[in-house]
Lab assay of single mutants.
Amino acid sequence: MGFKLLSKLLVYLTASIMAIASPLAFSVDSSGEYPTVSEIPVGEVRLYQIADGVWSHIATQSFDGAVYPSNGLIVRDGDELLLIDTAWGAKNTAALLAEIEKQIGLPVTRAVSTHFHDDRVGGVDVLRAAGVATYASPSTRRLAEVEGNEIPTHSLEGLSSSGDAVRFGPVELFYPGAAHSTDNLIVYVPSASVLYGGCAIYELSRTSAGNVADADLAEWPTSIERIQQHYPEAQFVIPGHGLPGGLDLLKHTTNVVKAHTNRSVVE
């Protein structure tokens, strides 16, 4: 069995187990497998329904001669939608809004960016022009300005110390501490036991640490421990890039980060 097929099978099995364990909360999309990078042309966006009122959005972007996937989250909030992270750029984010209108038909009224990198804030200006209120932590807003990236308009308070959590509509926002970046936030959907790890969490097929220019490698494993301790009931975990899975993604990420750190020390 090929690795790609095995990865998709694991996603399907995880979703099936969740649907059985929580039949009222989960209505997993039966329309197909989780979209992969090879299936999404740059400039297009796919939506994948995880649970009743919960979707991931998947886009792709060219970077350094390669094409990478990027995940975000959409959560229903009454007759409105909360968006977590842009679709990595203005063109993708405009396509995301169009796809949401086509498939869901509810307005996106608020959006949260989970850290300051372009795959999370690139497209904020498109959201703002569409009347979406954009939010991020003060740290993310400051770092985005320093980096020359787009800056969300509103500040999220109460997320300055490791372990801080605040309720934001249908989700809980959690600051686990520094990891992929010093400002990275985690998003949890309690009604569906869905954990969105953003770039602080890796997919299972990833074996290298990737972009760690703004990471705190020493603190990252401790931050992941905080996530595990705060959300032990999480059933569906979405990484910032690639295929979702279960809580095993947290341990896998820790292993990859520690291996990278150990290699760096040896070198």
Rank of each mutant, 00 (worst) to 15 (best):
4 K>W: 06
6 L>V: 15
7 S>M: 09
9 L>P: 11
10 L>R: 11
10 L>M: 13
12 Y>C: 12
13 L>M: 14
14 T>A: 08
15 A>L: 13
17 I>M: 15
17 I>W: 13
17 I>H: 07
17 I>P: 04
20 I>D: 14
21 A>S: 12
23 P>D: 11
25 A>C: 14
26 F>P: 11
29 D>F: 09
30 S>G: 15
34 Y>V: 09
35 P>I: 08
37 V>C: 08
45 V>R: 01
49 Q>C: 08
51 A>K: 07
52 D>I: 09
54 V>Q: 02
55 W>Y: 08
55 W>K: 00
56 S>L: 15
56 S>E: 14
60 T>C: 06
62 S>Q: 08
62 S>V: 06
63 F>R: 08
64 D>L: 10
65 G>D: 14
67 V>C: 07
68 Y>C: 06
69 P>C: 07
69 P>R: 09
72 G>M: 01
76 R>Q: 11
77 D>S: 08
77 D>F: 07
79 D>F: 09
84 I>L: 10
86 T>G: 01
86 T>H: 01
86 T>F: 00
88 W>D: 00
91 K>P: 12
93 T>I: 04
94 A>T: 14
95 A>H: 15
95 A>L: 15
96 L>I: 05
96 L>N: 01
98 A>L: 13
99 E>T: 11
104 I>C: 00
106 L>R: 10
108 V>K: 02
109 T>P: 06
110 R>F: 04
110 R>K: 12
112 V>S: 02
114 T>V: 01
117 H>A: 00
118 D>P: 07
119 D>F: 01
120 R>K: 03
120 R>F: 01
121 V>N: 04
121 V>L: 06
122 G>P: 05
122 G>F: 04
122 G>H: 08
122 G>K: 08
123 G>T: 03
123 G>E: 04
125 D>N: 12
125 D>P: 04
129 A>T: 11
130 A>E: 11
133 A>K: 15
134 T>P: 01
135 Y>E: 00
136 A>S: 08
143 L>V: 03
143 L>M: 10
145 E>Q: 13
145 E>V: 09
146 V>T: 14
147 E>D: 10
148 G>I: 02
150 E>K: 06
154 H>A: 06
156 L>H: 05
160 S>I: 11
160 S>P: 07
162 S>G: 14
167 R>H: 11
169 G>M: 03
171 V>P: 02
173 L>S: 02
174 F>N: 01
176 P>Y: 00
177 G>H: 04
179 A>R: 02
181 S>Y: 04
181 S>M: 01
182 T>V: 12
184 N>R: 00
185 L>G: 02
185 L>H: 02
186 I>W: 03
188 Y>N: 04
188 Y>T: 00
190 P>D: 08
190 P>L: 08
190 P>G: 07
192 A>N: 07
195 L>W: 01
197 G>A: 08
197 G>T: 03
198 G>L: 04
201 I>D: 04
203 E>L: 02
203 E>S: 06
204 L>E: 13
204 L>T: 09
208 S>C: 06
209 A>K: 08
210 G>E: 08
216 D>I: 07
217 L>S: 03
218 A>C: 06
219 E>P: 03
219 E>Y: 05
220 W>I: 03
221 P>W: 05
221 P>Q: 09
224 I>T: 05
224 I>P: 00
225 E>L: 12
227 I>R: 01
228 Q>C: 07
236 F>L: 09
236 F>P: 00
240 G>W: 04
240 G>Y: 02
241 H>G: 00
241 H>N: 03
245 G>N: 03
246 G>L: 04
246 G>N: 13
249 L>N: 03
253 T>R: 00
255 N>Y: 12
256 V>W: 01
258 K>V: 11
262 N>G: 12
262 N>S: 12
263 R>V: 14
263 R>T: 14
